[in-house]
Every structure is written in structure tokens, then in C-alpha cells.
Design a protein around this nucleic acid. Structure first.
Lengths: 169, 169
DNA sequence: GAGAAGTAATTCAACTTTCAACTAAATCGT
DNA sequence: ACGATTTAGTTGAAAGTTGAATTACTTCTC
């Protein structure tokens, strides 16, 4: 971990053909997949990010969540959530409620109209997940995929902690 | 394929736990992975998309490609490429050259400076691919991944052709 | 070879996302 | 209990992206 931050130490270790194939097929498929799924959701005037926000809200107790928590579990920035909430509020899908315990805070609350919107979109979205990905995988593939990508997420979390720590130090 | 375009026919077939786990672990990891890798590239003032554009250019004969072809293989829209080219041109990494055989067309040409920039960024990027993904996979995992995602891309292409055809009809 | 249709690339306008700055409230340390 | 710091959330400006419209050229068809 010496030297310039993130610099390559020594000669780089290039990818062998197997590694390269894995990386390329992953990166190409993931782009195309996302593209196709965004397109599928457009029929419901939703992006994947907005869908995720509404889905998380609809799962939450009382269909309400603090802004920060919602941003975190929907994996978008607080700023971005603020902006999207404004749009979704205008669409009548959500509203904001003050938090009495912490007067800095707000709850994002899903409206009936928002609930109807997500209930309408969900079957098509599940279909999209199937048609574009899941139905092309055997049970074994599905298990492999879970295992691999859970590991990736775990490692990223570890790295995030390490890097965060080294910045603090 | 009857009824409203893309509408759910009958009751939706929800994901079982195995399918849901595969989907969730994939979508979460892919978001985080992309995020981490974009961050890694920021040290070189590059986004993944810009890196891909430069990488494709650097691989091309004469380090030059027609705009349309570059957009296609870098998997971005022509419009987006035009905008990015303006930025990268200002940075001195690329320049545009008129195409004499087809006067509507232009070549994107990588400059020496651009070449130096990508040569400098490449080792770190490979490192990023390794640290964030490839090195956490066994050879078997890598092969599984290739197989699965090549299949996904193939199916997406088939679907794209079908859907394209049905719009034309 | 003239007009219709198609293609290459850019541009414009609308929209989205990011980043930094900001407000206001809570918490911490002494 | 007071100032300092942290946290919740929003905002505004800048940058990025998209899709439709536009321009300039090419190709096709008769």
C-alpha cells in the first residue's frame, strides 16, 4: 500500500484470456441488460432507480421511510433522492412528512396513487427480470450467480472500509 | 404475444427465493462494482464510458474509427459520443478528421496525448478489474460467468431482433 | 439523372445527475 | 450550558445524457 494512492505497483498483471472473457462478457451483458430493463419500465413512466425507490417504500412499515434510509437502501445519493422525490411528489406518488422526533428529518411516504402505480408496474418488471435474465439461468446458474456476486459485494464492502480507514488515518 | 405490448398475460409468476437471491445479489453487486470502478478511474480523469471510447480507439487500426462505429462498439449513443468527443478533443486526447470517401462522415482519431493518457490509465484500470472482481473468482467462476453472461447477451440480441421485427411489421 | 429515401453526424431543448454550499437541528465534549 | 462538530435534508449551478430535429451528403429506383 505504499506510493501514490491507487497507483500500479510494478508491472501490471494483465488479464489472461479466461479472465478477459469473464470481464468482457460481464460488462457487455450488464450494460445491455440494464438498457433493456430500463426500456421495459418506460411503459410505466419509471426508471430502474425510481422503481427501486417505490419498491423499497412499498415494503417499509407504513410505507414510509426517512429520506436518508431510503436513499441508502435504494442505493442513490441523498441529493438525487431529493430531486426525484420532487418529481414523484408532483406525480402524486409520494409525499413528505415532517419527523417530529428529529425536526431536521422527513419521512418519504407512499400515497395510494403511488401504491397503485407500483402494483401495476411490478408484474411487468418481474416479467422483465425473467425474460431478460432469470429464465435463461438454470437453478445451478442462479446459485452460482448468487454466490459469486455476494462475494463481490462483500469484498467491495471490505475494501470500502479499508480505504475509508486509510483516508481517516 | 397477444394483447397490450409488454403487458403481463395472466397472473405474474413471482420469483422464488433462489431466483430472487440471484437477481438481488446481481443487481446490488453490479451497481456497487460500477461505482467503485468509476471511482478508481477518476484518478485519471476518466469515466468508464470515456475509457471504453479511448480503449476502442487505441485498438483500432491507425487508432482511428468512424464516429458511428466507435459509438457502436463503445456501446454509447451517437449523440453521447459527439458530446464526449467535444470534451476529449478539448483535453487534446482525440481529434476529428473529415472522411474523404463519405463527406458526411468523420473519423475520431486518437492523438499522441490520448495514447499516453490511456497507456497511463490502463494498468490501474486492469488492477481495478482485478481487485474489484476478477481476483475474487476462481477459474471455474470465471468460466461460469462467461457462459452465463454470453447467454444473456445472446438472448437479448434475439429479443431485440424479434421486437424490432414486430415493430416493423 | 432527378427525386425519394436513407445515412452520418451534430445540435437543440428537456431532463437528470452530481457536487458543493447551505440551513437547521441534534449531539458531543468539557 | 456553551460552542464545536456532526447529521438530515435541500438547493442551485454545472455537467452529463437523451431523443428529436436538422444538415449535409449518399444511395436507390425508375
Amino acid at each position: 500500500m505504499a506510493g501514490k494512492s491507487n497507483a500500479n505497483s510494478g508491472e501490471p498483471k494483465w488479464l489472461n484470456p479466461r479472465e478477459m472473457a469473464a470481464w468482457r462478457s460481464y460488462i457487455i451483458a450488464s450494460r445491455r441488460l440494464l438498457e433493456a430493463m430500463e426500456l421495459d419500465l418506460e411503459n410505466h413512466d419509471l426508471s430502474m432507480a425510481d422503481y427501486e425507490v417505490l419498491a423499497q417504500l412499498s415494503d417499509a412499515p407504513g410505507r414510509r421511510l426517512r429520506m436518508s434510509e431510503l436513499a441508502e437502501i435504494a442505493m442513490i445519493s441523498k441529493s438525487r433522492l431529493s430531486h426525484r422525490m420532487k418529481v414523484m411528489e408532483a406525480a402524486g406518488w409520494v409525499r413528505r412528512e415532517e419527523c417530529t422526533e428529529d425536526k431536521r428529518g422527513y419521512f418519504a411516504v407512499m400515497t395510494d396513487k403511488g401504491w397503485k402505480a407500483i402494483v401495476k408496474a411490478a408484474p411487468d418488471h418481474v416479467n422483465s427480470v425473467r425474460n431478460r435474465l432469470v429464465d435463461h439461468l438454470t437453478s445451478k446458474d442462479q446459485e452460482d450467480l448468487s454466490k459469486i456476486f455476494n462475494r463481490v459485494t462483500d469484498k467491495l464492502r471490505d475494501q470500502f472500509i479499508e480505504e475509508g480507514a486509510s483516508i481517516k488515518k
